[in-house]
Structures are given as C-alpha cells and as structure tokens.
Design a binder for these strands. Structure first.
Length: 547
RNA sequence: GGGAGAGUAGCUCAAUCGGUAGAGCAUCGGCCUUUUAAGCCGCAGGUUCAGAGUUCAAGUCUCUGCUCUCCUACCA
C-alpha cells in the first residue's frame, strides 16, 4: 500500500516538473539561488515596519541636504588631500530618517552596480528603493539581482532624494519576504482580463491597486456605519443563518441539510423575523450586518450572497427610520468623499453627480404614480388598460387576471420609478399595504381602493437601496397577512413564502411599536466608491466554476 | 431564459479578401552606480478556448461545447 502511494506521488511530481512553465521554472531557480545566499525566501516575522506611505511622509529635506553637503565636503577634503587623517575630515552629519518597509516588487531596473526597485503596498502604488553595490550589504545586493516582479521584500535604509527628485529608500539591507512564482501581469496595463480579475482577486488586487482601494473603502464604510449606530445606542446582534423557514422576505432560498437532526434547512434570505423577536425580548435598539442568500439571478446589482444592514428601534416608526437613514448615508458619504477627495454635494457615480449633502427628496408612492401615469392609483381599470397598452403582463400563467395591486405596482416599477432623479437620494413613501405584509397598515386608508402601509423605499443612483417600515406588531393582523401571502400563489411560489407561527407567537407576547430598516450595503458601497457593478465591491464575487 | 460580443506567447494587444501567426512588456544571455514603462546588443517563446466540419489551404468560414462581458428577462 505505502509502496503504491510513493509510486503515485513520484509519478505526479515527475509529471508536474514537465508541466511547469519555463517562466515559473526560472523563478524557482531564482528562489533556489536566494536560498544559496543563506536567505529565507519566504521570510519571517518583521516588527516596526512602516507602510510605504508612512515612510514616504518621513522624508525631511533639511536632513537630506545636510547629509549631502557634509558628505560632499568630506569627499572634497579627501580629493584635496588623499592622506588626510579621519580626525581632520570635516564632520559627516547624517540625520536622515531611516525606514524599514515591505512591499511587492512592481518594477525592477538593474543598472549593473545599482538596482532600482519600485515597491507597492496597500498605502502607495509605488515607492522607490535603491540597492547599490557600495551601500547595501552583500547578500541584499545579490538578492536584488535575483528578484522577480511580484516578489515581496523588506528594505531598510535612509530616506533620500534622487537627482530627479524622487524620495527613495537608499537600502543598506534587503531581505526576502515572499517569492512570487507566477509570472505577473503586464507592468503597465495591469491585469485586464475580467474573468481572471474576479477568479484570482489576489492577483488583481496588487496588479490594479484601485481594486484594493475599493475594498479598503468598503471596510471603512462598514466601520463608520457601526460607529454611527453605536453612537445612537443600537447594539449589534447575530441571528441564525440556518433557518427552518426562510422568512422576512419573498425570495427563493438556498437549501441545505443538517445531518445530526435530519433537518432540511434554508440559508437566510433576511434576518428580519429574528431581529423583531429580540425587540419582543426587550432589547430596544438592535442591528445586524446580515449576509443574506437568495437563489436567484446574477447581474450588475445582484450577487447570490449579499450584505444588508437591518435596524430595529422600539418606539420608533418609519419616520424615525427616515431620519436615521438620511443621517447614516450622509455620514458615510462624507467619509467616502474625504477618502476619495470628492464633494458630498456631487459624488461621482458613472455619469451622475449624486448630491448627498442636500436634504433627501420625499415623495409618496401615489404622487409619483400620478405624476408618471397621469391618473391615480385608485383608478385600477385605467391601470389595467395602461398595462395592456404597454404590453406588460396582466394575467398569470394559468390565465387568471393578476390582482389589481400587482398591476399598479408593475406600472409603478416600470414607469414611475424612472421619474425619480437618480442624482438625488429619494424616499418614496406609503406603499400599498398588500405589498408589505410585515408593515403596519396606514391609519385611515383601510377602506381606500388601495390601502397603504407605513413603508418607504429609498432610491439612489437609479438603484433601490432599501425599505423601512413602521413594524406591524398586531399578531392577529400579522397572521392574516401571512395567510394572504400564501393564498393565490402557485405551488412553486408558495415554497418560498412562509407562515412563521413562532413569530406570530412572539407578537402575541407583545412587541413594542417600532421602526425597522433594511439597507443594501453592497449598493451603498457601489454608490460611494463609484463602482457600477456589485462584483467590484465584493472581494470574491460568485463565479461559475471553470470546466 | 433570450440576444449580441469576446477567448491568439506569461501579460497587454495586432493579424486586410481564407494564403508563412506578429509587436510591446516580461523572461533568458551580454553591458551599465541616479533610473522613472531606464537604456543598448542578442536569443528564445504558439495545441490561436475545446472538438468536429467545409477547403488545395482555417486564428479567420460553418456547427457543437466551455468560460467571460454587455444588453434583456426574472427577482418584495
């Protein structure tokens, strides 16, 4: 048995060595040569490293000039009198900042006895290192000769300016930190192949520093969001991702199975119903940064797993949520603007300049509908006729007419949403109640043709960023709404609509009146980082596996 | 689901009417102590996504498959 294993391993490695590309083979040889110098090609712990930007900022021209002058004077003295004693030499004053930095080799210019490296890290696209035969230790200089693009090195030395004025670390030591065995992308164009950029993000990130900048901005946005909520006394909680019923939204879930309990489970499509249970339990202000999973299509603004922020505030309502949301988004925009050197009143997003500085627009669903269609949402016959005229679906697959409210909403989504100025963040208020089963019905509209609910949606840059409600906390109405959702849908649809009995029980125990909010954080990051695709704000977007 | 486009050297890209697959960068060898995409000299590098077909001849035309991109559809 063990013989067989050895045999197969042996075969495999022989096979591999044949398959290794000559560019990788060359890099392996360079790595072996580094080992032969007595250096560790994969490095070890290094403390007190400066970032490249931090090192760059330490340059002090006065100290550099003083060093250059005194060094020049010393040389001149030696030229004037080659036999001059050390004691008689003019004093050499070197107060230049010394830096110790690490980075990936982006450019490598070998001038013979002087080698120039351009390093990159997450703080600077380029930082120059000079490795001279005279001034660097011997192993470091030999290492510099053996470097390949993409290698990671640690350099240490004083900061100086070159003749052409570039701040440079004039290395006296250089040690390896990691070998790059894979040939890097073209040094200027960077990695252009979109497929490889997403599949091998680790390559894209250092080849195209913009990718890293967006991901770092995302992190800062998420962090600022938490600070804002914590400042407002919200507490962060974590609720189940594995759920027996995927509730809180209507979407097709991903299914999985738990062996220990022989249980079919769904990955959550929203955390809503669990967060409200916490309100029942007595935590008055909660939020969760929730990775949600929806088994549906992919496009520029949809990834099967995405990040939402959900917030619930006891004794609030949907207006409370509007104030909270406007404050939050503006604060995040201010952060992004300062990072990217933009103006919050004109944040670039594609061709748009979005104004996050002014008060957000507010318009009701019915106002917007009437403005766009020329008649009221109560005129359902006109709506049906309009829908037919435009060729929208008015009947379901089995031929039965679609409910009035879906006709209205079809027109709203197709026509009225387009009326919203994408450059102005806009709250659309008071949605039809039957579209919002978890929302408290709007007082006084119960008997209207289209009863409304205390719900708004916010639109920015042509995208729906998220809804908020005055939460429905009457258990009887909630139970009714669940049943309403389950009736009149076909078998396929009903598989992803649920009646959560325990949630109704929680409401029976008593949930305080509350405002609730859900925001698509990926989309907010898109808006604030000027990325038109959700894939560009996710480190690892969903990709079909390669054949 | 539907439509359009793309896939060529390690990378970025060319290749006219179907007629010897090229360049730049990177690599390799040589020279070079202030370069900025360093420079100069020289070498090498290809299953043109995969498979089938048409043809004297296919990167190019046809078909099938794979992957990606864009548009569209679906999506509380």
């Amino acid at each position: 048995m063990s013989d067989q294993i050895e045999q197969s391993v042996g075969d495999q490695s022989a096979e591999n060595s044949v398959d290794i590309h000559h560019l990788e083979q060359q890099r392996r040889e360079n790595r072996d040569a580094v080992i032969a110098l007595g250096l560790l090609p994969y490095g070890e712990r290094a403390d007190d490293l400066l970032t490249l930007a931090g090192a760059h900022n330490l340059y002090a021209s006065q100290a550099d000039e003083q060093y250059k002058e005194t060094n020049q004077a010393q040389r001149q003295a030696k030229r004037d009198n080659p036999d001059i004693s050390e004691a008689d030499l003019p004093e050499l004053i070197d107060n230049r900042a010394r830096v110790r930095v690490a980075g990936r080799v982006m450019l490598h210019r070998d001038n013979g006895k002087l080698i120039w490296l351009n390093l990159r890290d997450h703080t600077r696209d380029t930082f120059q290192i000079a490795v001279s035969k005279r001034d660097c230790d011997e192993a470091g200089f030999k290492l510099a000769k053996l470097l390949d693009g993409g290698d990671i090195v640690i350099a240490e030395g004083p900061l100086t300016k070159t003749n052409t004025g570039e701040i440079t670390c004039w290395a006296d030591t250089l040690i390896p930190a990691s070998k790059c065995l894979v040939p890097p992308p073209e040094k200027h164009a960077g990695l252009q192949d979109t497929e490889r950029r997403y599949r091998q993000r680790y390559m894209d990130m250092w080849s195209n520093p913009e990718t890293t900048r967006v991901l770092l901005l995302r992190s800062k946005i998420m962090s600022a969001m938490r600070r804002y909520l914590e400042r407002n006394d919200f507490v962060e909680v974590e609720t189940p991702v594995l759920q027996t019923q995927a509730g809180g939204a209507a979407a097709r879930p991903f299914l999985t199975h738990m062996n220990a309990l022989s249980l079919d489970l769904s990955l959550r499509i929203a955390p809503e119903l669990y967060l409200k249970r916490l309100l029942v339990g007595g935590i008055p202000r909660v939020f969760e940064v929730s990775r949600n999973f929806r088994n549906e299509g992919l496009d520029k603004s949809h990834n099967p797993e995405f990040t939402s922020l959900e917030v619930y505030q006891a004794f609030g309502n949907y207006e409370t949520m509007m104030e909270l949301t406007e404050g939050l988004i503006r604060e995040l925009a201010e952060l992004a603007a300062s990072e990217l050197d933009n103006d919050t009143s004109a944040m670039p997003f594609g061709d748009l300049k979005i104004d996050f500085a002014s008060s957000f627009e507010r318009v009701t669903y019915s106002q917007l509908f009437e403005k766009a269609l020329g008649f009221s949402i109560d005129e359902t016959e006109k709506a049906r006729a309009e829908c037919e005229k435009r060729g929208y679906k008015t009947k379901s697959k089995d031929g039965t007419p679609i409910d009035d409210i879906f006709i209205i909403n079809e027109l709203f989504e197709e026509v009225a949403e387009g009326m919203i100025d994408p450059a102005k963040p806009t709250f659309v208020l008071d949605y039809p109640a039957s579209l919002s089963p978890l929302t408290r019905p709007k007082q006084g509209t119960e008997n209207d043709v289209v009863p409304l609910a205390d719900r708004w949606d916010i639109f920015i840059g042509g995208m729906e960023i998220g809804p908020a409600y005055t939460e429905l906390n009457d258990p009887d109405i909630q139970a009714e709404k669940f049943l309403e959702q389950l009736s009149g849908v076909d078998a396929e649809e009903s598989t992803f609509r649920t009646f959560d009995e325990d949630f109704v029980n929680a409401l029976k125990v008593g949930m305080p009146p509350a405002g609730g909010l859900g925001l698509g954080m990926d989309r907010i990051v898109m808006l604030l980082s000027n990325q038109r695709s959700i894939r560009d704000v996710l480190p690892f977007p969903m990709m079909k596996p390669q054949a």
